[in-house]
């Protein structure tokens, strides 16, 4: 009949990027990027059906509750939102998750964690920021520690990490500190990412590349 079958017309949301390009710039293979697109679609259509991950959708995926406020989830969201326009696009999602890939060099993970903890983006983790994060963590975990104990923990941390004693932790000091305490970046690696195409195999059915 001369008609082009609509099943071959794949419409992508704004911010969609070619998996081949994304794979060339990240730790993922093309198939893994395509599998990540399945996860991305699930997250980005969970509340606001526009193919972009909004903060509420991110919170829903992390906490099963779209209204749950969390300082650290906010920071992760803001760092994933590279364009800083209030939503996470597919390209941003893949590039950011690539930091968490087991094959990504530690240096990148260390730098990402530093940005995460540098709440006010001054280039330093300051004492007040560290205390704010400790209080946020205690609040989320319903653990009560007295102000004296919190001050002791923060103070001890600065004794160990603030090598030049200027009252703030810079990136070099952070690198040294992580070298001595490698467990601090354990959460910067997601083993799931090695098996992502197994976890979301349905991409094979939808992939343009498989045509």
């Amino acid at each position: 009949m001369g008609c082009v079958s609509s099943k071959h017309v794949v419409k992508h949301p704004p911010g969609y990027e070619d998996p081949v390009i994304l794979a060339s710039e990240t730790a993922f293979t093309v198939h893994e990027v395509e599998a990540l697109y399945e996860l991305f679609k699930k997250l980005s259509f969970s509340i606001i059906k526009d193919g972009l991950i909004h903060k509420e959708e991110f919170q829903l995926a992390l906490f099963r509750n779209s209204n749950r406020k969390n300082l650290f989830a906010d920071r992760v969201f803001d760092l994933f939102d590279i364009k800083n326009n209030g939503v996470i696009e597919f390209g941003e999602f893949v590039r950011s998750l690539s930091i968490f890939h087991p094959n990504t060099p530690k240096a990148e993970k260390i730098a990402f964690a530093f940005k995460l903890y540098d709440l006010r983006q001054t280039g330093y983790i300051e004492r007040e920021e560290l205390k704010e994060m400790v209080l946020a963590l205690l609040d989320e975990s319903d653990v009560f520690l007295s102000n004296d104990i919190v001050e002791t923990i923060v103070g001890n941390t600065f004794v160990q990490a603030d090598l030049n004693g200027d009252g703030k932790i810079d990136l070099d000091e952070w690198r040294e500190f992580v070298k001595k305490n490698p467990s601090l970046i354990r959460n910067m690696t997601l083993p799931y990412l090695k098996d992502i195409s197994m976890a979301f195999p349905s991409f094979v059915m939808h992939s343009e590349g498989s045509d």
Binding site: V134, S183, N187
Partner: peptide, 25 residues
């Protein structure tokens, strides 16, 4: 309970930093 060695040990346990949850079905 023992006081953790450093504040970052404590912080790194936040649920908000556990992105593994994104992959749970």
């Amino acid at each position: 309970k023992p006081v953790p060695m450093n504040a970052f040990d404590l912080i790194s346990t936040s649920q908000g930093l556990n992105l593994g949850t994104l992959f749970e079905k």
